[in-house]
């Protein structure tokens, strides 16, 4: 939904929720915080200013704080400027990246990780390992980067078959990483080799 809003062309998304422990729906604000945190990391990874998303927590009795939050956010967005100014590319590229990001957040991996984030950090995973915040963040960043790249590759291959080299140049990702992603996608049966062009194979989305 947040990414939909960006795709609709808004320049910033401010989300307000209750303070920790005061959620009408018990854990709703924690879930929201995790999801929004991830979405803002995602923006950063696709080259968009992550301050375009802000999650504020306040109670319904804090009128002045509300005004303050809204005004600060508006000011911040005005400073950052219109959506897309930061990536210095055309509208199509912006849309392409946002679509890939959206596909990534809608995917299985990120939903599980975010869904279970509190648990990972609280009582550890099922092997009894606890993540520190820092480890969790690093792990998340890596995961998000992979997920976005995979979705971008899929979006590209939907249009026409491409070779690893072409993809690597288009997305500015080293070819060994692209190869790894392609191998993963082939295993899942969503991408396959179309034909061999000269020496390099071309892949397509099934």
């Amino acid at each position: 939904m947040i990414l939909d809003a960006f795709l609709c062309g808004v320049d910033g998304v401010l989300i307000l929720g209750c303070k920790d422990g005061e959620c009408h729906y018990v854990t709703g604000n924690m879930e929201a915080k995790n999801k929004i945190g991830m979405t803002s990391r995602l923006l950063k990874i696709i080259g968009i200013d992550q301050n375009r998303i802000y999650f504020g927590q306040l109670s319904s009795a804090e009128g002045t704080r509300f005004v303050e939050l809204v005004e600060n956010f508006t000011k911040r967005i005005k400073e950052i400027g219109a959506l897309g100014t930061e990536i210095k590319e055309d509208k199509e590229e912006l849309k392409f990246r946002l679509e890939a990001a959206k596909a990534a957040v809608e995917g299985e991996k990120l939903r599980w990780v975010i869904g279970k984030k509190t648990e990972f950090m609280g009582i550890g995973n099922k092997y009894g390992e606890m993540f520190t915040r820092h480890e969790m963040d690093r792990f998340l960043d890596g995961l998000i980067m992979d997920e976005v790249a995979v979705r971008e590759i899929q979006l590209l291959l939907q249009e026409r078959p491409l070779s690893v080299k072409q993809i690597s140049e288009r997305l500015k990702i080293p070819s060994n990483r692209v190869l790894r992603y392609i191998a993963g996608l082939r295993r899942k049966g969503v991408v396959d080799m179309e034909r061999v062009d000269g020496t390099s194979p071309l892949y397509r989305q099934l």
Binding site: M1, D4, A5, C8, Y25, V26, T27, G28, E31, K35, E106, G107, E108, R111, G115
Partner: peptide, 27 residues
């Protein structure tokens, strides 16, 4: 509360009266 609907990556869940389409149209 909608946590489940916002989580299902197969889009199998619908939140009555706050469907993706309805909220999307508002956005």
């Amino acid at each position: 509360c909608g946590v489940c609907g916002a989580t299902c990556y197969h889009r199998a869940i619908k939140m009555n009266h706050f469907t993706n389409e309805q909220v999307g149209s508002q956005i």
